[in-house]
């Protein structure tokens, strides 16, 4: 079964990326975590994302485009990255979610991936 692990970080946690004193520990933990996922053979695909400051939001409302620069003030947790993993059970996916560095500095959402429609072309 495939699950998406959606890594949300608090603003303070994301800020550690740019803090010279905290950045080595921040990246050390993430590199080790992603490395352990790859070593265990569960990774289908995934990426970390650049800072929420780099985000741009596009919306079409009443036929009118609205484009907004990030970061967006209306959230206190930001998407920091995502991985799609293939595990035997949801319990295993939850175990990997709990190991993410942001599990204790934000949250990890676990969502089953929608299977492709059965009438999809082969």
């Amino acid at each position: 079964m495939q699950y998406m692990l959606i890594f949300n970080e608090t603003t303070a946690e994301t800020g550690r990326r740019d803090d010279p004193a905290a950045a080595p520990a921040y990246w050390g933990a993430w590199n080790a975590y992603v490395g352990a996922m790859y070593e265990s053979g569960i990774v289908v695909s995934g990426n970390g994302l650049q800072s929420p400051r780099t985000a741009i939001r596009v919306r079409v409302e009443g036929g009118k485009r609205q484009v907004q620069d990030g970061p967006f003030a209306d959230t206190h947790e930001h998407l920091g990255g995502y991985f799609i993993v293939e595990t035997v059970s949801l319990d295993d996916a939850l175990e990997w979610a709990a190991r993410a560095p942001c599990a204790s500095a934000g949250s990890v959402e676990v969502r089953p991936v929608l299977p492709p429609p059965t009438n999809a072309p082969a």
Partner: peptide
């Protein structure tokens, strides 16, 4: 140490191990 960091779900143990790197 890297593998242990990646596998633990205890943030305090993780911090301890990261400091050992």
């Amino acid at each position: 140490v890297q593998r242990a960091i990646g596998l633990t779900d205890d943030p305090r143990l993780r911090d301890f191990l990261v400091a050992q790197l």
